[in-house]
Write a protein that binds this DNA or RNA. Structure first.
Length: 419
RNA sequence: GUGGCCGUAGCUCAGCUGGUGGUAGCCCCUGGUUGUGGUCCAGGAGGUCGCGGGUUCGAGUCCCGCCGGUCACCCCA
């Protein structure tokens, strides 16, 4: 273990079956979202610090203590991407994507960086698969994103997930609700913990996040946002639910599910897998009809989510899901004659080009070892060329299942091997 | 950022109350005569006992700091 370097705290190396599982999970996600017209977007790994500072809010934990911010050699203030939505919206505004058919639907699969305390399921560099639909406030988009996620999770065979759903209103109804909530908190201020009292001043909605049992008991009687939505928000929420119902997507309305930032509006949701431990949220999403203004743009509705790749992989592993399969082999080339090697390796390239997964035993191994490797790697056939075969311009093709062998002219080898 | 537990070969682990690092298993390499596998047998490689201080005649074993892991608070994905 005494190496000069190790991976920085909170970062992960991916290799072997875990890397294969990770890729499989992402393959499924891409397929599902592209089936619904979402296209890939890649935004920069770092942005002007303001992009995140302005959107996440000065009071947020992300901005206050979790950003990887730095100055480049020209003194520009930059920050490594802590979340995906702000950069996508910035790109939407910058490139005038409002001139495209709305909504603009994109998916991304990129690393996020947050300087937070590391524990299982929470890392300083983590990957998120996310999707955003910008330019429409149609509740059908909210439901579509959730339903697509449900299909993704089903396709990767993760079960036992809980979908929490809520509407947190908008500028029309939320301020009045917050006043109501604060009034309620003031009535019970003596029964609340110190943190909740602080939240009463800073961000009243977050009191619902308190894990203190006595606080929760008090809050059970608090006014619920879902009972105080304005007509437009109530109809929007009802439409989202109706579409989810019609799609057979199960969810639980959780009035305590909130978002801390002002630009979030209406729909909010989280997928959880409780057995994961403290970091049980697999993904979080919501509508952000106020975000574009924060970036200095015109009012532009949008909705999206970010899903933790590491957490999904962890969940699958803890569920005992089949490990990702490492690339198997169709053909192993065992070239025993040095003179034959150039020609045979050229033929191996042809086999590869023809779609046969092929590899050679390198390092001058004995045939016995090569066959052992071939069977371990699942190769169906082994091409053997020693002095005999080379002299005759042929190769021996061994079927690893039956053990049968036959000689084939080198000119016809690739054709013979092709399925 | 705070607190609990932990850190011996690539991996899984032995190592009693401090006295010279394990024939351990898996993995890797080689061999069991000259070209035949999913076995078996034999051999080999691989460790500054996370790093740095301290206590001691002597520390993998005790103390401190740091690094890393893990769990919880917090926050989120």
């Amino acid at each position: 273990m005494s190496r000069a370097f190790q991976a920085p705290r909170g970062t992960l190396d991916w290799y072997g079956p875990r890397a294969a599982l990770r890729r499989s999970v992402l393959d499924h996600a891409r397929r599902v979202f592209e089936s619904a017209g979402y296209g890939q977007v890649v935004t920069p790994t770092f942005e002007d610090t303001g992009v995140y500072r302005r959107t996440s809010g000065e009071g947020s934990d992300v901005v206050r203590k979790e950003m990887y911010s730095f100055q480049d050699r020209s003194g520009r203030d930059l920050t490594l991407r802590p979340e995906g939505t702000a950069g996508v919206m910035r790109a939407y505004l910058e490139h005038g994507l409002h001139r495209r058919p709305q909504p603009v639907k994109v998916w991304y699969e990129v690393p996020m960086f947050r300087y937070s305390s590391v524990q299982k399921g929470r890392y300083r560099e983590h990957y998120q698969f996310g999707a955003e639909a910008v330019g429409s406030d149609d509740p059908g988009i909210d439901a579509e994103l959730i339903a697509l996620q449900a299909r993704w999770y089903r396709n990767v065979d993760v079960t036992g997930l809980t979908l929490l759903l809520n509407s947190i209103g908008d500028d029309t109804c939320r301020p009045a609700y917050v006043d109501l909530l604060v009034a309620f908190l003031d009535e019970h201020i003596d029964e609340l913990c110190e943190e909740c009292r602080e939240r009463r001043d800073t961000n009243p909605l977050r009191v619902f996040d308190c894990k203190n049992a006595s606080c929760q008991a008090v809050l059970a009687a608090a006014p619920k946002i879902t009972d105080h939505l304005c007509d437009a928000c109530r109809e929007h929420f009802a439409a989202v639910r109706a579409q989810l119902d019609a799609r057979g997507v199960d969810y639980r309305v959780e009035p305590g599910l909130v978002r801390g930032l002002d630009y979030y509006t209406r729909t909010a949701w989280e997928w959880q897998w409780p057995a994961l431990g403290a970091q049980s949220t697999l993904s979080g999403g919501g509508r952000y009809d106020g975000l574009a203004e924060q970036l200095g743009g015109p009012h532009t509705p949008g909705v999206g989510f970010g899903a933790g790749v590491e957490r999904l992989v962890l969940t699958l592993e803890e569920m005992g899901a089949a490990e990702g399969v490492e690339p198997a082999l169709d053909v192993m080339f065992a070239v025993l004659d040095d003179e034959a090697r150039p020609r045979l390796h050229a033929l191996m390239d042809e086999a590869r080009a023809a779609g046969l997964r092929s590899d050679a035993a390198y390092g001058g191994r004995r045939l016995k070892r090569t066959l052992e490797l071939a069977s371990r790697r699942g190769a169906g056939r082994v091409v053997i060329v020693g002095e005999d075969e080379w002299g005759a311009g042929e190769a021996t093709v061994r079927d690893m299942g039956s053990g049968e062998q036959r000689r084939v002219a080198l000119d016809a080898l690739v054709g013979e091997l092709a399925p």
